Amino acid sequence: MSAHVFSDPPMSVMARRLGHAGSAAFVLGAMLVWIVNDQAHPYVTLALSAYAAMVVSFLGGIHWGLGFQHHDPPASLFVWGVLASLFAWVAVMMPANAGLVLDGVLLVLCYLVDRKVYPAQGLARWLTLRFRLSAVAALSCFLGAAGT
């Protein structure tokens, strides 16, 4: 009798690389908030906030994709996807000092929601990467807000 060991499929190398590249954009944006001149400052803070909002919307959209895989999906997958995008939109419309804080909070909240949803959907293997990317992104937003 041989023992069968089941393991999760390996994580996509491309997804990991693209995730890290996306984190680099957050870090660059937060750095620029602190070093650009007063004329460029509003554009840099808006760029960071808009990028964060797009990422939050993307993370919410993942829940729609998960819902599409089920015959009778839980409504919470779709509701969360819409709420994440709506809150991110509000963050972009706010002054940068407050909007970037909301962006950072939303990124943390997205991770906390995913900690509950991903294991139930068989995606727990993505949580370590999600934690790292979310931590860098949220910290970048908070540092960007502090620089406004």
Rank of each mutant, 00 (worst) to 15 (best):
M1R: 07
S2P: 13
A3K: 14
A3I: 15
S7Q: 15
D8Q: 13
P9A: 14
P9G: 11
P9M: 10
P10H: 08
V13L: 15
M14E: 06
R16F: 12
R16S: 12
L18R: 08
L18Y: 12
G19C: 07
A21M: 11
G22Y: 02
G22M: 06
A24T: 09
A24D: 02
A25Y: 03
G29W: 06
M31L: 15
M31T: 12
L32W: 07
V33S: 11
I35R: 12
I35D: 05
V36M: 08
N37T: 10
N37R: 11
D38I: 01
Q39S: 14
A40F: 09
A40H: 09
P42H: 00
Y43R: 10
V44E: 04
T45K: 08
L46V: 04
A47I: 01
A47P: 06
L48T: 03
S49N: 13
Y51E: 00
Y51D: 05
V55N: 00
V56P: 01
S57W: 04
F58T: 00
F58L: 08
G60K: 06
G65M: 08
G65E: 07
G65N: 02
G67M: 10
G67Y: 08
Q69T: 14
H71F: 13
H71A: 15
D72I: 12
P74Y: 07
V79L: 14
W80V: 13
G81E: 04
V82N: 15
V82L: 15
L83V: 11
A84L: 06
S85V: 03
S85R: 02
L86T: 04
F87S: 05
F87A: 14
W89H: 09
W89V: 08
W89N: 07
W89Q: 10
V92N: 00
V92W: 03
M93S: 15
M94P: 05
N97Q: 15
L100E: 03
L102S: 04
G104K: 00
G104C: 06
V105D: 02
V105Y: 05
V105M: 10
L106P: 08
V108C: 14
V108A: 14
V108N: 03
L109Q: 03
L109K: 06
C110H: 09
Y111L: 15
L112K: 09
L112F: 12
V113S: 09
D114H: 11
R115H: 09
K116Y: 11
V117Y: 04
Y118N: 13
G122I: 09
A124P: 01
W126R: 11
W126C: 12
L127R: 02
R130M: 07
R130A: 06
F131H: 10
R132M: 11
L133D: 04
L133N: 08
S134H: 00
S134L: 04
A138V: 07
S140I: 06
C141V: 10
C141Y: 03
F142R: 07
L143S: 06
L143H: 05
G144I: 01
G144A: 09
A145Y: 01
A145Q: 01
A145P: 02
A146T: 04
T148A: 15
